[in-house]
């Protein structure tokens, strides 16, 4: 017991001397830091007091801030896109050779020199229904790269982009295309609710249709399937349920490409 007491006293002693040492060390450290800071404060030049031109800051007025023009990101063109290029379709699986039929099994005949018959490798039959082809950005042809959408609108479920194939018409009658885009977007806002959100997420469908001279719609069809049938149907219905557009200001018909991107915001 007494032994224990002495050791504890010894420990206290050692602790006291250590504490004093630490305090001294810390004070020295703080003092050193302060000395360095004061030295720095005194000897480094203050803001704006450059010895060459004391107290003179030159500022010149500009009429506008020359910010770079902000352009809407172009989705279709790989050259100007901010988005990551979609990953290409995985390479097709190599057709595996069908297992040999029992009749094909070669029975060793007396003439082993004969070349054994090999069953013909079946070429995969092309699917009957058109398969959804992923939208591949066409960067190779300059034509596709210059074809920017006439109007891109942010909607509740993603974006809708209108492209008119006749560029001259698009420039000359921009107001007409605004009316078309407005009508389609309003209709799509109603019908996009019918698209299945899970199946349609981040998919896009491209429709193609003609506007006739009298403003009626013809030749409506899906150009690029999205892979989600509900999204395809919703986009088709949005256009089918439109009454009419105003009659064309010029020409016999125009062809409109409409792309709906489905995205939850």
């Amino acid at each position: 017991m007494s032994n224990y007491a002495t050791t504890s006293e010894e420990r206290d002693d050692r602790f006291g001397s250590g504490l004093a040492g630490a305090i001294v060390l810390h004070l020295a450290l703080i003092g050193g830091l302060a000395a360095v800071a004061i030295f720095e404060h005194v000897h480094t030049p203050h803001w704006g007091e450059n010895t060459a031109s004391i107290g003179a800051i030159q500022a010149s007025m500009v009429s506008a801030i020359p910010l770079p023009p902000k352009a809407a990101p172009v989705k279709d063109s790989v050259l100007a896109s901010e988005d990551v290029t979609p990953t290409p379709q995985p390479p097709p699986k190599e057709a595996t050779q069908p297992p040999p039929k029992p009749t094909d099994v070669l029975i060793k005949a007396k003439t082993p020199t004969k070349v054994p018959k090999v069953a013909p490798i079946e070429t995969p039959v092309p699917p009957k229904h058109p398969q959804p082809a992923p939208v591949t950005p066409k960067a190779a042809s300059g034509d596709a790269a210059t074809q920017l959408p006439q109007s891109v609108s942010q909607l509740k479920n993603g974006t809708a982009a209108l492209t008119v194939q006749n560029r001259v018409f698009g420039n000359r009658y921009a107001y007409y295309l605004r009316i078309v885009a407005n009508a389609v977007n309003q209709s799509y806002a109603t019908y996009s609710g019918q698209a299945d959100p899970n199946a349609s997420m981040n998919k896009s469908v491209t429709l193609l249709f003609d506007i006739q001279r009298d403003g009626s719609i013809a030749n409506l069809h899906v150009e690029n399937h999205s892979g989600s049938s509900t999204l395809d149907t919703a986009a088709l219905r949005a256009i089918q349920h439109l009454d009419n557009f105003p009659q064309l200001p010029e020409g016999d018909h125009i062809t409109i490409e409409y792309k709906f991107d489905y995205r939850q915001q």
Binding site: Q154, L155, I179, N182, A183, N185, Q186, Y188, T190
Partner: peptide, 12 residues
């Protein structure tokens, strides 16, 4: 906060 017009369409 997000503002949204009813149909995404505006009058001319």
């Amino acid at each position: 906060f997000h503002l949204e017009t009813s149909g995404g369409a505006t009058r001319i």
